[in-house]
Structures are given as structure tokens and as C-alpha cells.
């Protein structure tokens, strides 16, 4: 899969769900991309580097979201 296609799929899917939640597990992303985890990871890494996606971590678990999306950034006064 090309990066552009991956970006479109991810942005579309995550935007659709933006009203209810902004953070997703890695598995959700590989399902959206319909790829095996290892192949999905290469594209997801690139989307992080391109500042489309960003990480969120509970310390023990990591999640992904569209950059800047969600409520907590505002709550932490980090934006």
C-alpha cells in the first residue's frame, strides 16, 4: 500500500469516529488498513513522522490519534 492511500484511509476512519473518541489502539489501525501488523507498522510509523498521527500513552498502554485531536491535550494546558 502506498503511503498516500494509507493516510487517506486512516484520516477518514479516525475523523468519522472523532465525535466519540480520538484515540485508537494499534490493532484498530491495522484493521483500518487491512494489513498484517508488521506491514501496517511501517506505514503508521511514517504517518507519525509526517505528523498526521501522534501517540498517547497511559504509561503502560500506547494509543494513536490524529495530531491535536481529543480533549486531554487541552486539559493538560500543553496545547
Amino acid at each position: 500500500m502506498e503511503l498516500a492511500e494509507a493516510k487517506e484511509k486512516i484520516v477518514d476512519a479516525l475523523t468519522k469516529k472523532a465525535k466519540t473518541k480520538s484515540k485508537f489502539y494499534f490493532n484498530d489501525l491495522s484493521e483500518i488498513l487491512e494489513l498484517k501488523p508488521r506491514d501496517a507498522k511501517k506505514l503508521v510509523n511514517k504517518l507519525v513522522e509526517d505528523e498526521v498521527l501522534e501517540y498517547w500513552s497511559s504509561g503502560s498502554t500506547t494509543m494513536y490519534g490524529l495530531k491535536g485531536a481529543g480533549k486531554q491535550a487541552a486539559a493538560e494546558h500543553e496545547d
Binding site: T20, K21, K23, S58, M63, G70, K71, Q72, A75
Partner: peptide, 12 residues
């Protein structure tokens, strides 16, 4: 609702 996303808290 201002600080958290309900589905994330529930899933936790």
C-alpha cells in the same frame, strides 16, 4: 465530558 473521552475510560 470536558476532560475525558467516555469510551476510553469505559474501555480502561
Amino acid at each position: 465530558d470536558k476532560m475525558c473521552e467516555v469510551p476510553l475510560a469505559i474501555a480502561a
